[in-house]
Design a protein around this nucleic acid. Structure first.
Length: 230
DNA sequence: AGATAGGATCAGGGAGATTC
DNA sequence: GAATCTCCCTGATCCTATCT
């Protein structure tokens, strides 16, 4: 059984873990970035963020774990953006989005059934930490991962916005230039959100939530037995 | 056990705002 | 100006607690 420390993390910890995971795969592609932004080799933080692409590293050089003070990423000229190896061509992205939309449209959840605990945690985390106005491709992704219809996911966000309007929203753009409205915490973690990045965050968040709830249920079952043996 | 009330959630429609 | 999005309102449904 996994220890509680391993599964009980804040949502931003999940995002930060993801950023570290992606570090290895992006390190090669970002190696041409201005290295003057890196902390000095002697810095205790430099090892923690070693290999992390600079867009995930704060101005202090630390990995963006619940990050604040993220250094603005060096602007990449538009003509260069499309040539970056980790960005999918637009046509491929369109096909991918259509596939996901078809999958989401095929989901038939029970009418008016309330979201379960796992779905609620994931949705709330997205709402509180990433965005209260997810664009349609992200709604589709959530519908697929959480097995709710697109309509239900849309309505959940609409209703939640009605109930709690607190919190800041900042304007941003996707890697393809599409308009986004994100939470400040999301832009501090990553300035250039994409469908792929959001999908990975969503998958990990969903997995970890499931594991945590599983662990908590097991604990609840074990506790009475432990008390009896005392 | 069945009836009832109240709160929470889901979903649809209309009106106004925004974007292209 | 048309299309799209968001907000607001409303009704339906589900769940739980309480009463008879």
């Amino acid at each position: 059984m996994t220890s509680p420390q391993a599964v009980c993390q804040t949502p931003l910890d999940v995002l930060a873990d993801l950023a570290i995971q992606r570090a290895a795969s992006f390190a090669v592609y970002d190696s041409h970035d201005d290295s003057s932004h890196s902390p000095p080799p002697s810095s205790p933080l430099s090892s923690a963020s070693a290999g992390l692409p600079k867009r995930y590293i704060t101005s202090s050089g630390s990995a963006a774990c619940g990050a604040h003070h993220l250094r603005p990423r060096k602007k990449v000229p538009k003509s260069h953006q499309s040539s970056r190896l980790h960005l999918k061509p637009k046509q491929e992205l369109k096909i991918r989005r259509k596939e996901l939309m078809d999958r989401a449209c095929a989901i038939k959840s029970l009418e008016n059934s309330p979201v379960n605990e796992q779905q609620l945690v994931v949705l709330k985390t997205i709402y509180n930490e990433i965005t209260m106005y997810p664009p349609e491709p992200w709604l589709v992704l959530m519908a697929c991962v959480l097995h709710r219809s697109l309509r239900q996911i849309k309505n959940w966000f609409s209703n939640t916005r009605q109930k709690n309007r607190w919190g800041d929203v900042v304007c941003a753009r996707t890697d393809l230039g599409e308009r986004l409205r994100l939470r400040p915490s999301a832009t501090e973690l990553c300035e250039l959100w994409s469908d792929d990045f959001f999908e990975e965050v969503l998958m990990i968040l969903s997995y970890r939530t499931a594991r945590r709830l599983q662990w908590e249920r097991a604990e609840a079952v074990n506790k009475p037995a432990t008390l009896q043996s005392c």
